[in-house]
Write a protein that binds this DNA or RNA. Structure first.
Lengths: 234, 234, 234, 234
DNA sequence: AATGAATGAGAATTCATTCAT
DNA sequence: TATGAATGAATTCTCATTCAT
């Protein structure tokens, strides 16, 4: 996974609080996606983060278009106008949400992947991490899998490139595995990457829309990895 | 696959024009999803279908919320008010679109699946059909994978149950295969179904958003089936 | 006075109902600036004109910025949205007002001036016409002398060029008179034009802001012409 | 010119810094309207004056409504809130501007006029002074001729009485001239005053909106006085 | 059935003003 | 005095939907 493919674009004042640990399962016990508020209630980020936090909740409940800015403001306990001190528009709020939270996920993955010995391990790590990190963040999962796609402009201009970069990163792992003889060579890395990403997305989506049972995502991760790794084996 | 799971709800006057043939590849040469206009220009369906046709185009281009009803009317060559003679609301237009077109796909699949000898063949047929039928229907593919999710209400109230029914149908195939010893038994049919569905969705989505190359979907179908069938093999 | 300098820019559907007569006093008994509604209640212009009519009243009462679009709508007896079927924006409403009404005044003047035998007669005619035509149109006078200047953008981009064209037309009359020996030659036609225009504007303004007595403007016109013609005499 | 007609209403802490000299041309070389800052940087007036100074600039550039209080604050180098320590509101800022600067002009004229031997000389002095004093103060000229009229409330409640007082002063000069046989008697002093005021205003306005060439105003003053004095001669 | 002019509810955003520090 | 983050009232304009023709 190249640095560039997952690199983030700095935005607002969202500092990149880097999570650093990795357990054997490649997913830390405490979620690195959780709001930084807990530790960083100190300065500035405070109000901005309260707004982001509230936005996740409200967007997940009602969707992007059906959500009124005033609802987010109310949920965040600030005045309507205050939102605009931290975000340019309602759309920017959604983008910032995505950048702020997804960037943490990607940064974490960027740190973990190099630790894996080979392509199969990396692929499993990607699956474990994506699902493992969203476990316990049902609302965020919903925002990423559904809400983000509700603004066509956002989807096409902003999210698509990010998704493509992520796909590229997965495709690289597949290609690396093929080169090393760990994966069958008759499968296009690109198609494989889309299948992996789609499967992850589909599992997340149905989980988020359903009862979002605790542990379900991690269990699904294991099984998905089992199927895909065997499916890609030479 | 149970009747109920894929059964359609009659709506407006959209009769279920049943496509009839099946080639060896399980996908007919002429797309069964194409507008029924050609044959059914007789009465009533005419204008209704022109509106649906136009709606696919315009929704695919601009998304659900950014599309004005007047744009659909213009594209269909009818007056704004005429839309409301055939559909209850803008949202109903999208729902009808989904029902009208997806129902044809599902009906077709309902007809084809029983012809397959076993679960692996059925799973491959599902994959072939979903991707094969959308090939050449880029705009419809975009409407199904993206636009339909833009109305949170629609997504939660209408599409989700349909998707779940489709998931059930796939899960049943997997379970059937496990029972027959064709598939490994350590994988939850539910999780497998979500992975299959997600992979199909992801491949369709990126294809629709990208250059939508001719033949790409069919090629992807073959590879996806190869990976999944090996991945699920006992 | 050149055609170009007072030519209008067609806008919306405001047909140029040309007034045609000229009395000895160069000002017709029935005001050519009055809404065309009276005669033309027939088609289309009806609602548009009702809105313009209402806008003059409300703008004159409250000024441009303090006037709500909904107030204009209410005064015109139409729905808020209807305004936007005929005008692009609140600002466009003001511009259209200006174009629609001032154009009639200028068109009238364009028709009358050539009938005057010499420059002094033309200058007197301009003064008579500007003041005579606004007599009985207090609100319109207020819109032109005050309200139009309340939008800086409008003033600089739209009104200024029109005013300059008008100034040019007056300057040409002065220059013509100087060439013919009817006016003293030590006065810059440009400065004279500004003085004439300013005097007309000042008289109109104070009249509109004051009690706007009947006949006051025509009386003022005579005296102003007397002073200026003697002041410009060789 | 009566004391009352041009007397100022004390406001804020704006003391009347009295300019003192008078040249033969009735207009001093150094502008008496310039900010008092230079001498009075001592206390209090300092910041208040910086704000007024900044307000002239910003109002002249963008107009009253389009100007944000924060822009004035920035231009003055103070915090937004500081403005409200010196002025009650944005509107009060404009009023204060008017009072502060116009009062200096009027005070100066009050001092000069009695020195003139007769009505014609007084009228010429008024013209010379109004135009002469604004020369070199383009932005102030713009504020007085345009910006001040952008708030309808201000215009009607505040400026109109002031303008009327000024008109009265001019009318008195005309009447005085008529009584002394220096001016023709068939012209209403009121109308004459309006014409003079309007001409002055029109010349200032077009000069401010145009290129505001150096010397143009003084030249215009001479010519305007020439025309009006001959026009008013018996 | 078809039209499209008219409707009017609805919401994002701005910005003058306040006030805790 | 000075600050500037926070407030929240206020308003233009859009557009799905209706309905008289």
């Amino acid at each position: 996974m190249s640095e560039s493919s997952l690199s983030s674009r700095a935005r607002g004042g969202a500092g990149g609080k880097k999570p650093k640990r990795a357990s054997k399962s490649a997913v830390p016990a405490s979620p690195p996606l959780a709001s930084a508020t807990a530790h960083a209630k100190r300065r500035g980020g405070d109000k901005r983060d309260r707004i982001l936090e509230a936005a996740i909740k409200v967007f997940a409940r009602s969707g992007f278009h059906a959500t009124r800015v005033s609802e987010v403001a109310k949920a965040a306990g600030v005045a309507d106008g205050t939102i605009y001190l931290y975000f340019e528009s309602k759309e920017d709020l959604l983008v910032s949400l995505f950048e702020d939270r997804v960037e943490r996920l990607l940064a974490f993955m960027r740190g973990e992947l190099p630790k894996q010995p080979n392509a199969p391990a990396k692929l499993r790590a990607v699956i474990d991490m994506q699902l493992g990190l969203l476990e316990g963040e049902r609302e965020l999962a919903e925002v990423i899998t559904i809400i983000l796609r509700q603004s066509t402009r956002l989807m096409k201009e902003f999210a698509a490139p990010r998704f493509l970069a992520y796909l590229d990163a997965i495709a690289k792992i597949v290609a690396e595995g093929q080169a090393a003889g760990d994966f069958r060579k008759d499968i296009s890395p690109h198609i494989a990457a889309r299948a992996v990403f789609g499967a992850l997305d589909g599992i997340t989506l149905t989980w988020a829309l359903g009862r979002a049972e605790q542990g379900a995502l991690r269990r699904a991760a294991t099984q998905l990895a089992d199927v895909l790794l065997r499916g890609l084996s030479p």
